[in-house]
């Protein structure tokens, strides 16, 4: 169910964020956004609208040209490199380009995310098996990632992002290569993480099928500017005055 934005504290807060890539490509312009704990937020928009940039800014892969970004109450521009690494352990990111190690197995790829937190081997194996079952990839556990189809690789990337039961999961075009059945599995995974772990989930997508029926907030990015999705009810909009 959607969260009550008026009472919850935001987990992520962007205040007048602008991102300009050299020489003068404006990816995001004066974007302000609050994402609340336990919320599922869909970010929609055409390719090049700024969805990926927004995700990269939240996970510290990029720095804003202007504006402030806070995650769990901490200003990202003031976090030390070690602090960024600790924060990344709690944020799961499923990249659009997957970023898997093709010469390693599915198990090894997913396990990496937990290994950096020094989880026990037993816990890693149990979690990997659970996630693979949820994504219908159990039989691919020991296959090399490079031998999988694009759709399977995408699900492995999602499993890796979800491995640590992150407090924030950022998924960039998570269903771009999936058929409807696999898309349903991914949506179920998001629901599972959200309900079981209380994870906040941000899904950047241009696939209307995954947010068409949702009760959750849907925002639209267009030419670097954030607005409410035209087809969504006004109560779900949380653009605020800085």
């Amino acid at each position: 169910m959607p969260r009550d934005a008026s009472t919850d504290k935001p987990l992520v807060e962007l205040v007048n964020v602008t991102k300009i890539y050299p020489p003068d490509i404006i990816a995001l312009e004066d974007v302000s956004l609050r994402i609340y704990k336990g919320e599922i937020l869909f970010l929609t928009g055409m390719s090049g609208a700024g969805k990926t940039t927004l995700i990269k800014l939240i996970c510290c892969l990029e720095n804003p040209t202007r504006g402030v970004i806070e995650v769990a109450g901490r200003d990202l521009s003031r976090i030390s490199p070690a602090g960024v690494q600790r924060m990344r352990q709690k944020i799961g990111v499923a990249y659009q380009e997957f970023r898997l190690l093709e010469k390693q197995t599915v198990l090894q790829n997913i396990a990496m995310a937990m290994e950096v937190t020094y989880a026990s081997t037993k816990a890693i194996h149990a979690r990997v098996d659970e996630l693979l079952a949820l994504l219908n990839l159990s039989d691919k556990r020991d296959k090399l990632a490079g031998e999988l189809s694009r759709g399977e690789q995408q699900r492995v990337a999602l499993a890796r992002a979800a491995a640590n039961g992150p407090s924030l999961l950022l998924a960039d075009e998570p269903t771009g290569n999936l058929d409807p059945v696999a898309t349903e599995l991914v949506i179920n995974l998001f629901r599972h993480l959200n309900e079981k772990n209380g994870s906040t989930i941000v899904v950047a997508t241009h696939d209307p099928s995954i947010y068409a029926e949702t009760e959750h907030r849907v925002m639209m990015l267009s030419n670097g500017q954030l607005s409410a999705h035209p087809n969504r009810a006004p109560r779900q909009i949380d653009l605020f005055e800085a």
Partner: peptide, 8 residues
């Protein structure tokens, strides 16, 4: 990738 996953 390790860096992206938060390896210290």
């Amino acid at each position: 990738i390790l860096r992206l996953l938060g390896a210290t």
